[in-house]
Amino acid sequence: MPRIQLLDASTAPMTAESYFAGGDPGPIVAALANVPELLGPTLGFIGAALGPGATTTRHKEFAILRTSALLGCRYCIHAHTTVALDVGLADVEVRALRGEMALEEAFTEPSEVALIRWIDAMAGATGPLPDDVWTAARGFWADHLLVELSATIGATMFLNRFATGFELPTSAGVLERLEHEGFDTGMAADTAGAS
């Protein structure tokens, strides 16, 4: 059960009406609608940070799924496991990003290994990034891509804490899909940082 009221079309503020016009907008919007003036700016930022950009969809999903696993967000891990599969990540890659198997078993491309280590340092640690992590990432990835991905990571961290703190529910459709694909739907990958 969510810890706060999730609003629907009949209970949502009139200033949030447009977000419910197309049907159930999902628990994040349903929760945010409790403060309707946050919807526009928050969803605008999330859309820009998680949506299409200069970075490929594949690598954006690296950032989103890996960050969610590092922060132990069940809701976001569930949702982005399906998104990652849909955009073409292999089953083993998804499992590795979720922290369920070693990264080196799934990723061999040096640029991608460097990127995941950089994501781990951005989302899963405190303080400055280790020089070797930064140097390795910077060797493959341009400044503007790392800036864009840092926004993806930041927006994901917000969503991770929002969804986890308020215990937002995963939709039945997503759970069915994950079970069908053989993924754990429990509290997956809260030890991702140690993998």
């Binding site: 503020p13 409790n34 403060v35 309707p36």
Partner: peptide, 26 residues
Amino acid sequence: GRLDLDLLLTRTVLPLSVPANALLGL
């Protein structure tokens, strides 16, 4: 016992221009 939110404009009340402009926009 539960506040109706259907006619909520904004949680922000000050500066007053925030809810006033939300109302005007509607």
